[in-house]
């Protein structure tokens, strides 16, 4: 089966800083694929490249056979209607309430009658357990609730795929469990393809079908959670088990401590 998303030889720089240096990723239909790596490796950047918000310096991203960065403006927007994305912050519109936030894509892209919009929105809110919070404003929501509203909004147009940016960070254990469940359930019930970007090892390995580990602008390892756990690589071991020191040093690379102490220039 051909992958839904095919990333080949992806290169991307921010100024002088190399973010991606030849990345290949395949994402299959109906699967939950996790992309993991330490903070600052460019996981969010990768999602923006997939969504066509950033252009790669080299390489290609193909979704359903279409090269995202070769599409015209209107074609790209057509494609995005079939993609959902959950931002780290939720990115809810702050001047309208929960109901209107979830109704927003419907109002923008369809001419459905008000009664049908009403029913559809309540259905989506019911699925994330927030039907009774529909009149609250985004500022009144807790972080976990905001993320669930954003999730309801991301699936209102019944997309073919959905991207989650760090869905678990900053969540208390209960809402974490709710989210983990929700992501898996939505994926299987709606026949979605999910991409999770995360550095939370325990939760991600729980629901992912396949995991890519990113570091230093490259894919260092890929496989099912089980194969990764038995990986021989020191780096993978350090990342998955959260060891403080290993191939990734505790100290930010630079001068030796002893040298710095003797360095007189900074002391003045």
């Amino acid at each position: 089966m051909a992958p839904l998303i095919k990333i080949r030889d992806l290169h991307f720089n921010r100024g002088d800083k190399v973010i991606f240096n030849g990345v290949d990723i395949d994402i299959y239909r109906g699967k939950v694929t996790a992309i993991m790596g330490p903070s600052g490796t460019g996981k969010t950047t990768l999602l923006k490249l997939i969504g066509g918000q950033l252009k790669p310096d080299r390489g290609s991203v193909e979704i359903d056979g279409q090269n995202v960065h070769k599409l015209s403006h209107s074609k790209l927007y057509e494609l995005r209607k079939r993609m959902g994305m959950l931002f780290q912050s939720g990115a809810l519109l702050t001047d309208i309430n929960v109901f209107e936030n979830v109704a927003f894509p419907l109002r923008e892209h369809t001419k459905l009658p008000e009664s049908m919009i009403h029913d559809l929105v309540l259905m989506k809110l019911q699925a994330v357990g927030l039907r009774n919070a529909r009149n609250m404003m985004p500022a009144e929501l807790s972080g976990g609730m905001a993320r669930r509203v954003a999730l309801a909004r991301a699936v209102t147009l019944d997309p073919m795929m959905i991207m989650y940016d760090e869905p678990f960070t900053g969540q208390d254990p209960i809402s974490m469990g709710t989210l983990v469940n929700l992501i898996r359930r939505l994926n299987d019930a709606m026949g979605l393809t999910s991409i999770i970007v995360s550095h939370d090892v325990a939760e991600t390995t729980q629901i992912a079908d396949e995991i890519y580990l990113l570091s230093g602008g490259k894919v260092v390892e890929k496989g099912t959670p089980e194969t990764l756990k038995t990986s021989g690589s020191d780096w993978v071991k350090q990342f998955l088990q959260g060891l403080p020191d290993g191939p990734v040093p505790f100290h930010y690379p630079g001068n030796d401590f002893g040298k710095d102490l003797l360095n007189s220039e900074e002391k003045r």
Partner: peptide, 8 residues
């Protein structure tokens, strides 16, 4: 950014 990804 969120709006862009909602194709708006």
């Amino acid at each position: 950014s969120g709006m862009e990804m909602m194709a708006v």
